[in-house]
Every structure is written in structure tokens, then in C-alpha cells.
Amino acid sequence: MSVQAGRGGERDPNLWRRNVRASKLRERGVTTLFAAFAYLSILTTFGIVLVLIFETINFFRQVPIFDYLFGTTWRPGFARAEFGVLPLIYGTLLTTAIAAAVALPIGLLAAIYLSEYAPTGLRRWLKPALEILAGVPTVVYGYFALTFLTPLLGNVFTGISTFNALSAGLIMGVMIIPTVASVSEDAIYAVPRGLREGGYALGATKREVATRIVVPAALSGIAASFVLGISRAVGETMIVAIAAGNLAQFGGPLESVQTMTAYIVAVSTGETAAGTITYQTIFVVGATLFVMTLILNILSIIFVRRFRETY
């Protein structure tokens, strides 16, 4: 009889007892737990958006939306308050443009070098080193801009303001270089070796292969790195709050400007009473920032879809 138990297909039921009920219960419990955490993060985001929308609606009950979107003067705390957001958007766009002008070309060229030209050994420590740079706290960058770069720029541009858009923008650019370089490098490095060899086999030089085959093939990843970098610049707070000044005006690069983020910091840390219209501007500017980055992300998705070069 015991010989039979060992034969395939006729196993002894006494030796095999799985607790089906308990395992089903455990399965259900774990599923619920995971779902709870997944919904928690989504609900938190929803909550934030709801608060933004709620306070924004309250704000627009008192200030016409047209005045907000197209007004050119921003002075909320004053007796004759004005709520034209354009100077803040201008400040954000100016510092972001300066940062992008620094970070996008340098980041892309660094990525091409790291992926295509750097010897394997060098790449192995240069890339992590670059990524460490991305971990420097932005407050450090902010004071670096204010106390080091601005005086340095003062030697070139006499009459530069102590707080200015140029210095903050340049340092912000340095801050996003690692993001741009690292994400583009991943995309460029991921281009299959076969494509490079196809180029070489036609008598292409290394430069021609790198710039005319590999980079176009990695374009969607490179575009993603650009958008990520620009999004970081738009949302960056500490550097501009410290180094760009807090004047909501259409100043040139050498003058003070105020970005949307810097305004939120300035108002949040002051003694603004909850419920006042000044308090509500925090949310309305926050919502504007949110919409801007959302548009940026949607544009990038459209761009990536249209220009994706598959391989």
C-alpha cells in the first residue's frame, strides 16, 4: 500500500493538507492592505487639489479672473491691492529660461560624452558622482548664488542688483544639469549597439554615429529629461527665494524679480491671517503653478508620442 503513495498521480491525501480557507483569507487581507496604501497616496493628491480648487474659487469670488490672469501689477497686501499675476509668471519664466539655457545644452553634451565617448572606467564613477550633485540641498545652492556668484557677476556687470534673476537662474541651471544629464544618458545608453554598428558599417565616424543616429533614436528620453529639468526649475523655491529678490516686477536679468514659488514662501512665512484675501493668494498662485507644470507635462507627452523613434 505504501508503495502506491509514491506513485505519480495517486498521492496520499493524508500527507497533503493545505489550509485553503486561511490562505484565501490571507490573500484577501494582503490585497486590501496594498489597495489601501495605493488609494491613500491618490487620495492625498486629490485632497491637495481639492483644497487648491476650493480656495481658488473663494479667491475668484472677490477678484475677477481676468484681472488676475492679465493684470500687470501684483501687490496683494496693500490698501489698494492689485492681483495681476503676470509679474510673478514673468519672474518664473525668466529664471527658468536662464536655467534651461545653462542646463539643457550642458546636460545633453555631458550625457553624450558619458555614454558614447567616456572610457568604461571613467563612466563608472563619473555618473554616480554626477548624481550625487543632484542631492545637494537647494538652500546651499541659494546661498552659493547670493554670496559667491552674485559678487563674481558684479565684476562683469556693474550695477547688478544684490538680488537678481541672472545669478539665481544660472545656479538653478547648475542644479538641474545632473537631472538632465543622468536621464538623457540613460536614454542614449539604452540605444541598441546594433544601431551604432549599422552606422559604423556604412563608414560613419564616431561623431556621425553619436549625433545623427544615437541621439535621434534617444530623442524621446532626451525630451523627457528636458521636461523634467524645466519642471524642476519652474517649481524650484529655495534658490530663487534667497537669491532672486522679492520684487514682483518686470525686471531684466540683472534686476530683482519674484517667482511664483518665492512669493508663496514670502507670504507663508509672514503673519498673514488665515481667511484673508492675501492668504487665499497662496492657493491661487499654487494652483497656477500646478496648471503650468501640468501643461508642461502634457506637452511633453504629446511631443514624445509624435517624435518617438522606436528601435
Binding site: 544601431l195 554598428e197 558599417a201 556604412l202 563608414g203 560613419a204 535621434p216 533614436a217
Partner: peptide, 30 residues
């Protein structure tokens, strides 16, 4: 040398370009 001695690989490796550009590219760079 590689211009004079061409190569076709095991796995098809067209460039991420149009059919026309795939053929014209090598001639262009040369």
C-alpha cells in the same frame, strides 16, 4: 575601410528614420 567593406548583421538594424533616409544616410555622410 568600412565604407569599402559593408556589413549586414544578424538582427535587422534599420535606423530610426524613414525608409528613404535609411538608404540615403550612408551616401550622405560619405
Amino acid at each position: 575601410i568600412r565604407r569599402r567593406i559593408g556589413m549586414v548583421f544578424q538582427k535587422p538594424n534599420p535606423f530610426s528614420k524613414s525608409i528613404y533616409e535609411n538608404v540615403a544616410w550612408g551616401a550622405k555622410i560619405n
